[in-house]
Each structure stands twice: as structure tokens, then as C-alpha cells.
């Protein structure tokens, strides 16, 4: 049980909420035109919570796309991101967030995403996300990812890891898989240095 609130507490809390609302309004207005966060996509994370891309605004974000049943390249994407994080100084590592967006909403249910996250030892920095097909196509379009679903249920897709700066703009991209790309790691550090 919470202790009863004083009138002052209530006002303060209302003010805080109002402030949040105004901040959110300002945020929506100010998102740069070339920001991925212009996209208002309905996503769900591996814990079943609804997720807004722009909720990561203000942080450096690594983003890539995958599907859980992929056996070849997608595990390497997870591994490469892990190596990229490890290549950062300890203090920086914790400040980076990761978004992994599935191509395959039909098979990547919340439960499957949860299992995939556990299999790759993804901690709280990671969000494994699903969205409806039409939404996935839009996210891929914004990220410049090409993919197509094959009759077998597999996906053909381009594989890259992108860095979003604090405003959600694509600041760097790497196609190197299996090892941390030094140029990309440098770009992540640069983005973090601008992070308040």
C-alpha cells in the first residue's frame, strides 16, 4: 500500500505528468526529418510490451533485422553486435541499446522472440521486436534493408548493422559480420560522446 498522498504531492505529480506530456509533444515536433523515428510503427518486444521506435531517442542504438529460424547469417548478426559491444570501453557498453526487428511476424511470436533472446544471451539492452507485415516492410524501407520471403518460409535479406545516433539518424552502417568492424566501433563511440 502506498502512503496517502498530500495535496502537494498530488499537484507535484500532476505537474510532472503534464510536463511529460509537453515534453512528448515537443519531442514529436522536433524529430529531425531524416530520423528513423519519424516512423510511427507499432512494435512488440520479447516481453510482450508494446514498443515505440522513438522511445530510444537520446541514446545510441544499434539496429538490425533478422528472423529466428534463420540458421546461417542471423546468428552471426547477434554475435557481431555482441562483439561490437565488447569492443567498446566498459563504461560505453552499458549505454548502447540494440533493436533487432524480425522479418517473420508469422513465426516470431513473443514467445519465440523471448527464446531467441535467451539463446543469444541478450540482456536488458536488447529489444527483439515484431510488427505486422506491412509495418516490417516500412521499417525495412527506412533502414534500407532488402528482404523477400521465399516459398520455403525462409527469407532472403541483406544483412547489415546500423548505428542510429541520439536523434535516430543513420550515422553508420557495417556489412562486416563475424568480427567487430573497427570503423563502426569508432562511429559508435563518437555517437556516445554526443549523448548527454
Amino acid at each position: 500500500m502506498n502512503p496517502p498522498l498530500s495535496r502537494r504531492d498530488v499537484l507535484r505529480r500532476l505537474g510532472f505528468v503534464a510536463g511529460m506530456w509537453w515534453a512528448a509533444r515537443a519531442e514529436a515536433r522536433d524529430i529531425p526529418g531524416d530520423s528513423v523515428y519519424q516512423l510511427r510503427a507499432q512494435l512488440t518486444d520479447q516481453d510482450g510490451r508494446s514498443f515505440e521506435l522513438s522511445s530510444l531517442r537520446g541514446q545510441a542504438v544499434l539496429v538490425s533485422m533478422f528472423y529466428s529460424s534463420c540458421e546461417q547469417v542471423c546468428p552471426m548478426i547477434f554475435e557481431t553486435i555482441r562483439l561490437t559491444l565488447l569492443a567498446l570501453p566498459v563504461a560505453d557498453r552499458e549505454r548502447v541499446r540494440v533493436m533487432m526487428i524480425s522479418f517473420d511476424p508469422a513465426r516470431d511470436s513473443v514467445a519465440v522472440l523471448k527464446a531467441t533472446a535467451e539463446a543469444h544471451q541478450c540482456d536488458a539492452r536488447w529489444a527483439l521486436l515484431r510488427a505486422e507485415d506491412a509495418e516490417v516492410r516500412r521499417i525495412a524501407a527506412v533502414l534500407g534493408v532488402q528482404y523477400r520471403r521465399l516459398a520455403s518460409g525462409e527469407f532472403n535479406h541483406s544483412s547489415a548493422i546500423e548505428l542510429l545516433d541520439t536523434e535516430g539518424r543513420i550515422a553508420a552502417r557495417t556489412g562486416t559480420l563475424g568480427a567487430a568492424d573497427p570503423g563502426f566501433v569508432k562511429a559508435v563511440r563518437k555517437a556516445l560522446s554526443r549523448q548527454a
Binding site: G144, Q146, S158, S159, A160, I170, A171, A172, G175
Partner: peptide, 16 residues
């Protein structure tokens, strides 16, 4: 956008 474009096309390189 330039970053996105050129890198995206680079990725497409492996298509055939």
C-alpha cells in the same frame, strides 16, 4: 540518407 543509400546498395551487391 546518403549513408543509407550507398550502404544499402553495397549490401545488394551480393544479389545476383
Amino acid at each position: 540518407m546518403n549513408v543509407a543509400r550507398s550502404a544499402g546498395i553495397l549490401d545488394a551487391h551480393a544479389t545476383r
